[in-house]
Design a binder for these strands. Structure first.
Lengths: 393, 393
DNA sequence: CGATTTATTGTGGAGTCCATAGATATTCAC
DNA sequence: GTGAATATCTATGGACTCCACAATAAATCG
């Protein structure tokens, strides 16, 4: 009988020490503030004495730092330690249609530097790749020469991205399919590189840093001119067999491929450029304009069709409303909820996304951090800090 | 930043020994045949010397047994050890509309005894619960008094089952909703009890013992008069927030609630009882009857609508065609594949289920085994065999 | 029968953790 | 101020587990 591998590490005495060190790192990283030795000992289950060994070792290795003791309280004041989020950094890149955004974050996901280059739908593949390079260089320059090496890189691209990091299908950019992003980034960055679809990364960012923090099962709706979706299942990004998840909009009956027309063809938006139409309609709907409200309602009903299919399939705890139209969540979200009700057994909670236009880059950083974690906490992982130099050519 | 907990165990020296013992148990359990000490040592990464300690300990505790050395080969023949699948047993129960089946399996998922009681849709709730008791008793009697205690129990029921094991929604049996199966079984069985939806358990059985062995992402289609679906995602049964996953058939546009009519109203099945109609139609379709083929095609097209929604959402590696109609997979499966093609980016492989009518009970046993595993391999788990006596009242 | 091959058994050493006891630093009460 | 109370820090010995290496044992091959 095949079974799911329940991870069992085991090993050497040194491996045991390593596991205990990792538990301590984890405890300090997850904690709100600094922890004392006694607190650490109770959390990890180790004895105080062993905790001293572990902590001094971690301090020497640069993983944790001592903080001045807490004032007040009885007895001898205890030394306190904190996780050094600045022990390492990762790079998250959003390669979008209109911009390339490179963000360097520390191990806690805090942004320390970023670089940004504007592009547009007409930018060719090579120009776009060059824009990526410029954005990355700008972020590295902004971070300054004092920053330690990068431990990981992840980039988000539109289109379907397979497990090898190749963009296999893309509509919005004609010459983007088949681009070898790992190869391109690998020429300049000598650390592990991951590529993922941009909506998936936005979903991840919301689950880690945003409105869905800690939710284990959620559907991320990218509400925009071309709606899309991404899934977090059992707390993990669901990549799918070939990377093409959340593509329920490809079914004709959902109408997702053409539904933006309901907004753009509304009388409210007459004469406006297609990219401005939606904003106008949402704005008019906000003031109560009947035609605009009707257009929003039609859009919401269409959006609800595909959403209901996913909700009924997955029974998620939460739906996150993201994408460009989530700026108008005050209008769109109630309409979507009403439209979902007749289809669903239980309409899940719906929350508008909060991270704004940096969400894809942030999600990329989160993914890179996940991979750093996996490397560290895997049975083969070492507690030595990786030497993965960034290479500025 | 919230993160997914990467399991880190750590702990004591005895915990280290326990981890190494568990790795050894795992290695022996997963292996095809018995293993020698040297083989075990290389697989677990331990030294030979330590392996001797671990193995003698496990032998004393009854987890593993020595096998006669392999004949032939150079040098001194090595002792060989095997996992004792009979060290413990679990009970899986299928509480169906037409039958109750209780199966006792060993730790490898091999059936050692079973009991079966026929019921029908008209059976009342209390009668059905009594039938469950009789089936369980029969299985325990069949297993004989020599069998060690049960380590876990799982039962499959139709309807939506929430995390507390309560059936919250059910159509086929009018008085079944709200039944407290854990409470009922707990009166007679003093070991951990889990309740789950029957289709989900069938999916699990196929992924562990059947046609989907080892596949990590799959959609299980229950093709019958009332189609349903269950999901295995990332190697684990996807329960959902309220247990209502795979319910895409509730959307009217899929037509899943009424589609059996295409078969039952076919001229081929004129005059037959509704429960026999499908068999007749599939039989005629097999011989090439045009009316029957048309009816099957219509059914397949409807089935494909909901299936495509799930496939596009999840991008699974595999679709398993189960349920009563999977007996006619030779006719239905090609029709389903053809019907899926226009909807999907990539039509996943489709395989007919192989486990037959025992699949739900087997899946229940698999789920019980999973929970046994979780208990053993969790940081708090002990390598001592659990004393969870069955109580025959 | 001896050489070769492979497995088993035994010993010493190193690393890690725990329990315990005594030293230390701070607050609180008088 | 001084001493009691409280909590932490430091140090030591003992127990457990693993590893490396050497000596012994049991089979096959020529």
């Amino acid at each position: 009988m095949k079974r799911e591998p329940v991870q069992v590490s085991g090993g050497d005495l040194q491996r045991l020490r390593q596991l205990n060190s990792l538990s301590s790192i984890r405890a300090l990283r997850e904690a709100r503030g600094p922890l004392t030795l006694t607190e650490l000992a109770t959390q990890t289950g180790l004895s105080r004495g062993s905790m001293v060994d572990v902590v001094t070792d971690l301090q020497e290795r640069g993983w944790i730092a001592e903080v001045e003791p807490a004032p007040g309280g009885m007895g001898r004041p205890a030394k306190r330690y904190r996780f050094r989020a600045d022990a390492g950094h990762v790079l998250g890149i959003d390669i979008g249609v209109h911009k390339v955004l490179a963000m360097i974050t520390d191990l806690a996901g805090q942004t320390v530097a970023s670089g940004r280059v504007a592009v547009d739908p007409g930018t060719t593949r090579d120009e776009r790749l060059e824009a990526v390079d410029r954005a990355v260089d700008a972020a590295l320059v902004a971070a300054g020469p004092a920053m330690p090496d990068l431990w990981g890189v992840a980039a988000g691209s539109i289109g379907v991205v397979n497990r090898e990091g190749v963009v296999t299908r893309v509509n919005a950019l004609p010459d983007w399919a088949g681009v070898d992003l790992i190869g391109h980034l690998g020429q300049r960055l000598s650390c592990p590189i991951t590529i993922e679809n941009d909506s998936k990364l936005a979903a991840l960012a919301e689950q880690r840093l945003g409105v869905a923090a800690g939710v284990r099962d959620l559907v991320y709706l990218h509400a925009g001119r071309r709606p899309g979706a991404a899934l977090i299942l059992n707390g993990r990004l669901h990549h799918g067999f070939s990377g093409a998840t959340g593509e329920v909009g490809l079914m004709e009956i959902t109408g997702w491929r053409t539904m933006a027309g309901h907004l753009e063809n509304s009388t409210v938006a007459e004469g406006a450029a297609p990219e401005d139409a939606a904003g106008l309609v949402f704005g008019s709907a906000r003031t109560g304009d009947p035609a605009a409200l009707a257009a929003v309602d039609t859009y919401a009903h269409q959006l609800a069709l595909g959403t209901a299919a996913m909700v009924l399939t997955l029974d998620p705890e939460l739906v996150v409303l993201g994408g460009g139209f989530s700026r108008s969540a005050d209008v769109l979200l109630p309409a979507l909820r009403r439209a979902l009700e007749p289809h669903c057994l239980r309409v899940p909670e719906i929350r508008p996304s909060t991270l704004g236009e940096e969400c894809v880059a942030l999600g990329a950083a989160c993914l890179a951090l996940d991979h750093v974690d996996e490397r560290f906490f895997s049975p083969e992982g070492s507690i030595a800090r990786p030497a993965a130099p960034r290479r500025l050519v």
